[in-house]
Amino acid sequence: MDDSNPSPVRRLHLYETILLFAVPVLFVVYPFAVNDYYIDIGFYFGIYALLGLSLNIVLGEVGLFDLGHAGFYAIGAYTTAILNTKLGVPVIILIPVSALAAALFAYIVCSPIIHLRGDYLCVVTIGMGEIVRLALINNFLGLTGGPNGVYNIDFPSFGGSFVIDSSIEYYFLIWIIVGVSIVGLIRLQHSRIGRAWNCIREDEVAAGTTGIDVRYYKLLAFVLGAALAGVAGNIYASKLMAVSPESFTFWESCMMFCIILIGGMGSIPGVLIGAAFISLFPEIFRPFAMYRMLVFGVVMILMMMFRPGGAWPRRRGGADLPSLFSRMRKSHDG
């Protein structure tokens, strides 16, 4: 992290430094050590990580309750599916196009509702997500194919020479995108925008009085979050080669919500942990067969009981050990 940054940057703990190097190495080595089935699980982990990162902007950074995020994901996936199958646009070009489509949709839909507070905003996003899903089921404009969806989507290819079509290539595609997003989002967290977002989350009125354009920054969060979800939709659509409305239900939105809260609001390592929990847990507990979702629910309750702040909560700058002690002393004195 650069020294020119005015916000105090926390020193990394030893275990954090080790994790910072060990985790990427693990991600690179993993697909060479296991078979395709486990590589695919790793791929879906990546999709959920990207979705988690995208919702984290809205929910984690700005604290806006968004329970309709699957709607943006769907817009991305269907943009890819329709433009690819009807017009033959290459999937790789559709990555930015899907992001733009989802972002534009978010801008148009969220502009009139962005002033709503807390749970009223929450229910409007639920409604938005459901409207998108129902429009897809009802074969909107004759393009979305109804309940069956759209199929025969191409593989992404670079100039026709290098085609991404195997599990391992998809695994690297999604994780490279996740990696790039993480770097970008960490930069964003430490920028003016990130501080404005966090300020709005902590106290919206105070943020407004200090001259932060609350409406602008909230919309920006929705637009950026939707764009990332659109990218996730693109990759998901080309991996499955088909999209259908049942992948974009209210349930998906709830799972994304859980990723953030299980990991820790606004914490990027937290998002990865949350995404791992949501995507890997049902696989690990497959032997429990029909009881596995029961176990899943119980574990969700237990996690909130024992770590209500999430598995890896975001620590603010300056929260290293010495400053923590000084803060404790202050609170004792006061």
Binding site: F257, C258, L261, I262, G297, M300, I301, M303, M304
Partner: peptide, 11 residues
């Protein structure tokens, strides 16, 4: 956190 716990209970 109670929202997640509620979802867990629902599952």
């Amino acid at each position: 956190p109670a929202v997640v716990s509620a979802l867990g209970a629902s599952i």
